[in-house]
Each structure stands twice: as C-alpha cells, then as structure tokens.
Amino acid sequence: MLELRLVQGSLLKKVLEAIKELVTDANFDCSATGFSLQAMDSSHVALVALLLRSEGFEHYRCDRNLSMGMNLGNVSKMLRCAGSDDIITIKADDGSDTVTFMFESPNQDKIADFEMKLMDIDSEHLGIPDAEYQAIVRMPSGEFARICKDLSSIGDTVIISVTKEGVKFSTAGDIGTANIVCRQNKTVDKPEEATVIEMQEPVSLTFALRYLNSFTKATPLSETVSISLSSDLPVVVEYKIADMGYVRYYLAPKIEE
C-alpha cells in the first residue's frame, strides 16, 4: 500500500514539466527514503535523477519498496487536471497495475481522482559515483535559462569555461559567434541573485545546447541552479526543490575527435 500526500501539489506538476521533455517512460521508485526516479533520455546522452524525500510529504506511507512504470506524457496529462493550489495524493495498492492521483481543492469542496494504468519498463539503473568537481557555479536559474536559449539561436553546442574571474558560455554557428561572461557576484541584495564560483582549477567543457535547454524546464522549481564541472565527467545541473530534494541532470560532454 502506497499513499503519498503532497499539500503543495503544484510541485509535482512542475517536476513533471521538468522531466517529460527529456524522458518518455520511467519507473518511479518509492521507498522509506522518498519518491525517486532515475532515467536516461532515449539517446543515452543525458540522465535525470529526481528525489522527493519522504519528510517533505504531509503524509507518507510506503509499506514496501515499489517501482511504478509510467509514461511521463500521460502523468503530465493527468496532473494538468489538478488546480495549482490543489493537494495531490498518489495512491497504489500492492500488486496493482494502476496508480491513482487524487486532487483536493484547498477548501476541500472538490475532490477528483484519476486512475492511470502502469506499464512495465525495462530500465537500466546507473550507479553515480561521488566525484570531486573542479568547479561548481551557482547562479540564478532564470539567468542560466536565458543564456541557453539565447546561445541556441546562434549555435548547437556551448563551451562552458570556468576561471576565477567568472564563467564563460561560448558558441559558434553559421551566422557568427557569441560569448557571455557571468562574473562572480556575491554582493547582491538577495542570495538567490548571486553568481558564486567555487573553483579548484579552471575547466572548459563542450555540451549540446539542446539538452541544456531541456534541463531549463526545471527553472520554475528553483530560483538558483548549480552547475558542477570536471574534465571528462558529465556535467551536473542541479535544481533544488525547497525542503524536499532535487532534480539533477547529468549530461555527457562532447569530446574532440
């Protein structure tokens, strides 16, 4: 028996919007720790890892570990029927091939339940080792989204270079080139507006902009994003979900031929 009640149901709506472009079908894993997902995109270039910790739910009952295969487009269709202030409860019985999403309006005058068929998904679960990153950049998530969007109108790939002075995003295409430098800027009024660079050594890596643009669908989840870079390692783009967990995207770098 599984019953997860999330008062801030809009979080779940935002989570689905953040991952459904990248991943078509995925297993949602439920355990005492929380509600999680790990899935690769169809070309196995990027990986998304989601965690919503059990403590973040108003009510969290998960009698045994459960893996529920879902088509994310279909989940998104169901969750779009929930109001933005609705409380969302996810329910499933042991051995059942369906999951139920229950939506309650804040004043309890409207209650809806949507039952969705589960599917069998053969997914590879990858072990992500802890790594020391050469550089970690934390910046406003809206700024990062803007940069990825702007650069993708010029080129297909971006070179992200971190030095002590700042982080540089560069691209080149048929019509020309573009460089955007964000300097470290800790002296802002609000901490979420800061650009902070923790650097062990300078690093420069190339990534496909198409994927970074998909990652920025998570922007509504967090005011800030952190980008962790190391040579010859996938970049980690992390959006923290307040008090609950995170959505992390891993993207394999492009390697010079």
């Binding site: 690769m40 070309s43 196995h44 270039v45 990027a46 990986l47 590879e124 679960h125 990858l126 072990g127 992500i128 080792p129 080129g155 297909d156 790939t157 190339t206 496909a208 390692l233 996938p234 891993y250 993207l251 394999a252 770098p253 492009k254 390697i255 010079e256 031929e257």
Partner: peptide, 14 residues
C-alpha cells in the same frame, strides 16, 4: 562540436 559521448560510458550499471 566534437563527438557526443554517452552517459553510460561514465556511470556503471548499478
């Protein structure tokens, strides 16, 4: 833009 590597080359199957 170089050759695109895949994520499974970096992370082991758990």
């Amino acid at each position: 833009g170089g050759k695109q590597s895949i994520i499974t080359n970096f992370f082991k199957k758990a």
